[in-house]
Write a protein that binds this DNA or RNA. Structure first.
Lengths: 218, 218
DNA sequence: AAGACTGTAGGTATAAATACCTACTTTAAA
DNA sequence: TTTAAAGTAGGTATTTATACCTACAGTCTT
């Protein structure tokens, strides 16, 4: 038998994870080494169980996908990550690629896409879906180091705290009372988040918070 | 062999759907009759392919889960629906139950939960997860016809249109220009949506729009 | 034909958010 | 230890959103 492709799956929705495991198990040259429900478990498992491919869900709790991806590309150069994400925006893709992902799959992919992606990344080192815009591909090719824009756009603890209260529908004044800070401080923080998230009002902030998994819809 | 349980699956994420099919196929007494990606296909298929159980994703495009659920409980009394949803709020559950769902599963359920739910609904007619609050169960038991509150809280076409623009970050003035209506009209519509959705500001509106699948995060 | 609802829009007011400043303190990194 | 950033908060102004009214024309249902 040929050498098997060693695979790990990190995905927080159990049903989805079990489903993917079940489907991929049918491929004879695939060896599902382990599957986990969050980024922290992934980093723990990968220490002792080397794999070739990690299928990585971007929206995971505890240690999120981005952070896990960063650690993996830095520490485990022989492991290549393929991102699975609910969202399919250019921002997400470019961010993932620049952090070291070798492939990107939307969650409405077919299992065949996943199988193709795994084989492609294993043999060629990368995989991109048909649906990825030519625009984006050109951007990625022409400009290896895609915008470090995201570097300084990471929200601080305080900003995240304020953002969550905004998502809960609280006004600046209400937030200032809760955090025991001046209303002006909260206003400034709010504007700072607007800048960083490139949004121009409350609606934009809420969408940003949800897209980036700061705020989880219950 | 005993009689098989005939099952249909309606879920818009292909990977999830294929995964569930693969996992359920391992149960010998389960007969997966068909699986579809939206509510319209479900209603089409079910005309000619009777099933005992429908696993129904609430967040589907074209004809959404709620509408499909309504038709099924009205027209196909021998078919029982089990809801699978990303969201686990009491509102969603009570709404689903009052529309005729016989069980409710969050998307982070285990496949064992799904199998249990199918068997339970098939033999006992209903299934509720451990995680469903006692509070809610009591509400459901004590008060069969749970709030018809939702009845008159359905958004009109105009309201949905305005809501989407709000989610896009547009101001009332901008929306009024786009729709060629008075700014006051848009303001009034906005307030009406606030009432219906029981939210008190823009943040609440956006969350409501996302939860209820009016606005899809791209 | 009466009633209910939707869509339309005006009046008036207050509350909240947004925009663009300055400035000081603390903390962390170079 | 200088530099950079974050956290703090004040001034001032404009724009937006929210709140609570009234009113009328069109549509659909009873």
């Amino acid at each position: 038998m040929n050498q098997q492709i060693r695979i790990a799956i990190a995905e927080d929705h159990q049903l989805m994870r079990q489903g993917i495991v079940s489907l991929l198990s049918e491929e004879e040259d695939f060896d599902i080494v382990f599957d986990v429900g969050d980024g922290a478990q992934l980093l723990e498992q990968i220490k002792t169980n080397p794999v070739d491919i990690v299928l990585l869900d971007l929206d995971m709790p505890i240690v999120n996908g981005q952070q896990a991806l960063k650690v993996i590309t830095e520490k485990y150069s022989s492991t290549h990550a393929i991102i699975i994400s609910m969202f399919y925006s250019d921002d997400f893709i470019t961010e993932s690629i620049s952090t070291g992902a070798r492939g990107f799959l939307p969650k409405n992919s077919d299992i065949e896409n996943v199988v193709d992606a795994i084989r492609a990344v294993y043999s060629q080192g990368y995989y991109f879906d048909d649906k990825i815009s030519l625009d984006l591909l050109n951007k990625l090719i022409s400009n290896k180091n895609v915008q470090p824009k995201f570097k300084d756009e990471i929200l601080t603890e305080k900003e995240i705290e304020v953002l969550l209260h905004i998502c809960e529908g609280k006004t600046n004044k209400e937030i200032s009372v809760i955090l025991d800070k001046s209303q002006r401080t909260v206003e400034n923080t709010r504007m700072k988040i607007c800048e960083k998230s490139n949004s121009k009002n409350t609606a934009g902030l809420v969408i940003y918070a949800i897209k980036n998994q700061f705020y989880k819809i219950k």
